[in-house]
Amino acid sequence: MVFDPNDPAFLSDPYPVFADLRQRAPVHWHDSLGLAVAVSHAACFEVLRDRSAGRIWTDKTPVSAFPAFNLLHRNSLLESEPPRHTRLRRLISAAFGRGHTARLRPWIRSVAGEMADGLAAAIAADESADLLTHLAAPLPVEVIAELLGVPAADRPRLQPWSNSIVKMYEYGLPPEGAAVAERAAGEFVDYLRALAAARSREPGDDLISDLVAVRDGTDRLSDDELVGTAVLLLMAGHEATVNVIGNGVLALLRHREQWDRLVADPALLPTAVEELIRFDAPLQLFERTATEATSVAGHELAAGDRIAALLGAAARDPAVFDEPDRLDIGRSPNPHLGFGAGIHYCVGAPLARVEIAAALEALVTRLPGLRLAEEPVRRDEFVIRGLRTLPVTA
C-alpha cells in the first residue's frame, strides 16, 4: 500500500507522502483502493486529458437499494462521455451562459459581507466563533440556492442533502452511511422535480428556469438530466467551495505573512484564490476508467482498468511549481488542476472563483486581525479534504 487513506497522520498532512511517491514514480498501484494513482502533475494532467480514460459510471449495487443515487449519476454531465457528454455540456453551458455569474456577483459580495459581519458579532459575543458555521459553509449553499432559484424557506435542506450524498464518494463507507446518502438523494430528486415543474409553469431568472427552457433545435434536457445537473451543481459547488474557503483561510492564518499581505493589498485576491485552490486541494482524488488499452506516464492500463489523478499531489509537484510547499498568494502562473482539465473542466469554475474571492475580501477588509482561536478539527475523509471546525478570534 502506498498510503493508508484512513491513517489520521496521513489525513492531517498527506503532502510529504505524496512528495515521496513522486520521487519514486509518477504512477503507483494502490492495493486497497484497487486502482492506479497518478502523483505527478504531468501524469495527473494526462489522466484528465486522455480520451482513452473516461468517466464510466457503474451503478452502486445492489441497484434496488440505490435508485435515486444511481439516477443522479446516470444522468450527470460529470459521469458521461462523448457523444452524450458533448450534448449535455452544450445545453448546460448555454443555460449557464445567460449571465448568471455576472448577475450574482454583486449579490454574492453583499451576502459574504453580511456573513463576515455575523462572524465578527459572534466573536465579540463569545470571544471566538467557527468560521465554517458563520461563513464558509452557508455562503456556497446560499449561492447555489440563489442560482437555482430555491425559495428561502427551503434552503436549509440543501446542505444536509449535499453532506449526506457526497459521503458516497469516500472509500469504505459503512452501509448505514450509504443508506443515509440514498435517502438524501431521493428527497433531493423529488424536490427538484417539483421545482422544475413549477419553473416550467412560471419561469424566473434562475438557472432551473433556463435549464427547463434551453433548446438546441428540438433537443432539450430530459427531466432526469435536469435533476442530475442541479444536484451536481449543489454537490460540486458546495463541497469544493466550502473546503477551499476553510482550508484556504487556515493556510493564510498559519502563514501570517500571507494573510497580512492580502490585508494590505486586496488586489491580490485573484491570484490568492488560485493559490488557495492549489495549496490544499479540496478534492484530492478524481477517478477515470480506461475505455481501451492505453498508458499513463508509462503505466499500462487495460480496458476497464481504473486510474485516479491525485490532485493534491499534482499541486505540489516541484517540476511545475517553484517551492511548491510555500504559500504564495501572488503566485503566477499557477497551472493547478483544481478545476480539472479537458472535457470535464468544471463548468461552474467562474462562479466558484467569485464566491471564494468574495469570502476572502469580506474577511480581510472586515476582520483584518483574524487569527486562530484554537486548533481546528479536520474531517476524517481523504477524497474530499476539509475541516469540521475552524475556530477563530479577532
Rank of each mutant, 00 (worst) to 15 (best):
V354M: 00
V392T: 08
L372H: 05
A358D: 00
R385D: 08
V377A: 14
V383G: 01
F382T: 03
V354F: 05
P368S: 07
R371P: 03
L367I: 08
V377Q: 13
F382P: 05
T389G: 10
G369S: 02
L363F: 01
R366W: 05
L367D: 05
P376T: 07
E355G: 04
P376Y: 08
T393H: 00
V392H: 05
R388S: 15
L363S: 01
L372D: 01
A362V: 00
V383T: 15
D380W: 10
A362E: 01
V392K: 07
F382V: 02
L387V: 10
G369R: 01
G386I: 12
R388L: 15
V354L: 09
R388M: 14
I356L: 14
R378G: 05
L370V: 09
L390C: 11
A373K: 05
R366Y: 05
E355K: 00
L390R: 09
E374K: 11
T365F: 06
V364G: 09
G369I: 01
V392C: 01
E375A: 15
A373L: 06
E374L: 04
A394H: 15
R388Q: 15
V392I: 02
D380G: 03
G386H: 12
E374M: 03
V383S: 13
A362N: 06
R371E: 05
V354R: 07
R378L: 14
L390A: 11
R388G: 14
L367A: 00
P391Y: 11
A358T: 01
G369V: 05
V354T: 14
D380K: 08
F382K: 01
I356Y: 06
V364D: 04
R378H: 13
R371F: 07
L372V: 09
P391G: 12
R385F: 06
T393L: 10
R379S: 00
F382W: 13
I384D: 13
D380F: 00
A359S: 11
L390M: 11
R371S: 01
R388W: 12
P376F: 06
A359R: 07
A358P: 02
L367F: 02
A357C: 06
A358F: 08
L363R: 04
A359P: 10
R388T: 15
V383W: 04
A358I: 10
E374Y: 01
L387F: 10
R366T: 06
D380R: 13
V383C: 04
R371A: 09
G386S: 12
V364C: 07
R379K: 13
R378K: 15
A394L: 14
V377P: 02
E375M: 11
T389D: 07
L360M: 08
E361S: 00
E375D: 15
T393A: 06
L370R: 09
R379W: 03
L363E: 02
A358K: 10
E381D: 12
R388H: 15
P368C: 01
E355W: 07
R385K: 14
P391R: 10
V377M: 07
